[in-house]
């Protein structure tokens, strides 16, 4: 399959009074056509800043993309003009945020917001755009779409607003959709509806999807491939099945043990990761997870590990010095 997106050494920093925040610290990954990739990690690990960097939406100052490439359909998005970038955002990459209220314009009707993009990017007439806008609302499961076009964002429920955001994101048939915590603010039955909608649209429109979430269950249900982030870095990546059944980074292992599962026997204690994620200012030359890691050895405190292939599975990478022996070490400590 062809590579749709290749992120290479993407590095985004924030200049603050206290020092430089290394929010995204040289991450690399690629995405194939039609793939659904899940990005997980605790708050503050750089998931959103990474997405905003791809879209060139990081507020500058204080933010700055200091290094890297973002190749999208072969073109480096970090090197193109702002005008060209705006057209990429409208036409080829759609983005959805956690809180749709902040990304919808409160004083414009839903219809106007949709038709504006369609007129601008698809050169449609007003009438064509209106017809298409109603079609899009129907596609995302909004009942009575013609009437809804006249509504303002505040008149809709959270779930309906997120559907409108999805309609806007797909309005110009993008190749890629980046959804940053798209359902975190929604109730579970609505979350299930919205995620199912996103998946079926991706399939129908042949669109790739990056789903950013802190919910390990959501990733397990929807993603083909998983990227685990910690402190501005990718610490592990592989197929969803490998990540959940054969985790090779202690952080991934710790996350999986922290969450209770509906299908496990009750009465067992959770096994949380102790401590807190580090401050992203002045990170020492060491594994950022080492202070919380129960498998850390001397080397982990002196060198920072890079992503390396683990085992025979070439599609599985981990940034841990002990990745190869993790299974044995982990079973010893729990036994």
């Amino acid at each position: 399959m062809a590579k749709l997106l290749e992120v290479d050494n993407l590095t985004t920093h924030f200049e603050t009074q206290d020092g430089v925040v290394k929010a995204v610290d040289g991450i690399s990954y690629s995405l194939e056509e039609g793939e659904i990739v899940g990005i997980v990690g605790e708050s503050g690990c750089g998931k959103s800043v990474h997405a905003l960097s791809i879209m060139r939406l990081v507020a500058s100052p204080p933010g700055k993309i200091v290094a890297g490439k973002v190749l999208f359909e072969g073109e480096d998005l970090l090197g193109i003009s702002m005008a060209r970038m705006r057209s990429v955002r409208g036409n080829r990459i759609g983005m959805i945020f956690q809180e749709p209220m902040t990304s919808l314009n409160p004083v414009l009707s839903i219809g106007r917001q949709l038709t504006e993009t369609l007129e601008l990017h698809m050169s449609m007439t007003r009438q064509q755009a209106l017809t298409r806008a109603a079609e899009l609302l129907a596609m995302v499961g909004i009942p009575d779409p013609e009437r809804r076009l006249k509504d303002y964002p505040h008149q809709l429920s959270g779930g309906m607003r997120q559907r409108v955001m999805i309609a806007m994101a797909i309005s110009c048939s993008p190749r890629l959709m980046i959804a940053d915590e798209p359902t975190t603010a929604l109730d579970v039955t609505i979350q299930a509806q919205v995620l199912e909608l996103m998946r079926s649209l991706a399939l129908e429109l042949g669109m790739s999807l990056i789903v950013i979430t802190h919910n390990l269950g959501v990733v397990a249900r929807y993603a083909n491939r998983v990227i685990v982030m910690y402190a501005g870095n990718i610490v592990e990546t592989s197929t969803a099945e490998e990540i959940y059944h054969n985790p090779r980074h202690p952080y991934t292992l710790g996350l999986l043990k922290s969450v209770p599962r509906l299908d496990e026997p009750t009465g067992e204690k959770l096994d949380p990761i102790e401590g807190l994620p580090p401050d992203l200012i002045d990170l020492p030359e060491a594994c950022a997870f080492a202070p919380r890691c129960r498998f850390a050895i001397d080397r982990c405190l002196k060198e920072s590990p890079t992503l390396m292939d683990v085992g025979e599975e070439a599609a599985h990478q981990s940034a841990c010095f002990r990745a190869a022996e993790l299974n044995e070490v982990a079973s010893e400590t729990t036994a």
Binding site: V188, T189, Q191, A192, N215, L216, G217, V218, V219, A220, R221, A223, A240, E241, Y244, H245, L256, V259, R261, L262, D263
Partner: peptide, 15 residues
């Protein structure tokens, strides 16, 4: 039933 079904289980094989 709907609530339980909507909760994703962190295991792609089970899911």
């Amino acid at each position: 039933k709907a609530l339980l079904s909507a909760v994703p289980i962190p295991d792609p094989v089970v899911e």
